[in-house]
Amino acid sequence: KIKDHVIEDIRFDGVACTIATASTSIMSELLKGKTIDEANKIIENYHAMIDGKEYDEDLLEEAVCMHTVGKQANRIKCATIGWKAIEEMIKESE
């Protein structure tokens, strides 16, 4: 739920692997209450971390637990599927 450029609530329902579920759960808690600009910055840093690029560890808080996923190419999609979904939802809300 996005209102006045603030993510008021995030929920997801589905069955997925542990990495996808954990990553999306962490993302949901991290982005809740953030402005769209703050959320986009966090999402950008998350993708940078997964891609092995420079990122702000403090900004990602608990999501840094996924920092080694990028070393396992077959798990990158798992760790980013929820993040890509919220990106699309943010774009649709604008």
Rank of each mutant, 00 (worst) to 15 (best):
32 K>L: 09
32 K>F: 05
32 K>Q: 14
33 G>P: 12
33 G>I: 12
33 G>R: 06
34 K>R: 15
34 K>L: 13
34 K>A: 10
35 T>K: 11
36 I>L: 15
36 I>E: 13
36 I>C: 10
36 I>R: 12
37 D>F: 09
38 E>A: 10
38 E>C: 09
39 A>S: 06
39 A>W: 01
40 N>C: 10
41 K>A: 15
41 K>P: 07
42 I>G: 05
42 I>Q: 05
43 I>P: 01
43 I>R: 00
44 E>H: 04
45 N>Q: 15
45 N>D: 15
45 N>T: 14
46 Y>N: 05
46 Y>E: 04
46 Y>A: 05
47 H>M: 15
47 H>N: 11
48 A>I: 12
48 A>M: 14
48 A>G: 14
48 A>H: 14
48 A>S: 14
49 M>Y: 03
51 D>V: 06
51 D>R: 05
51 D>Y: 02
51 D>K: 09
52 G>W: 02
53 K>R: 11
53 K>M: 01
54 E>S: 05
55 Y>A: 07
55 Y>R: 10
56 D>A: 06
56 D>P: 08
56 D>Y: 08
57 E>T: 01
57 E>C: 01
58 D>H: 12
58 D>S: 15
59 L>I: 05
61 E>D: 09
61 E>N: 08
61 E>P: 02
61 E>C: 02
62 E>W: 00
62 E>C: 00
62 E>F: 00
62 E>S: 02
62 E>K: 01
62 E>A: 01
63 A>G: 02
64 V>I: 07
64 V>P: 00
64 V>A: 01
65 C>W: 04
65 C>R: 06
65 C>Q: 13
65 C>K: 05
65 C>P: 05
65 C>S: 13
66 M>T: 02
67 H>F: 03
68 T>K: 06
68 T>S: 10
69 V>W: 00
69 V>A: 01
70 G>W: 10
70 G>K: 07
71 K>G: 09
71 K>T: 03
71 K>P: 02
72 Q>I: 12
72 Q>T: 06
73 A>N: 13
73 A>H: 13
75 R>F: 04
75 R>L: 11
76 I>F: 02
76 I>H: 02
77 K>F: 03
78 C>R: 04
78 C>N: 09
78 C>K: 05
78 C>L: 07
78 C>D: 12
79 A>K: 00
79 A>S: 11
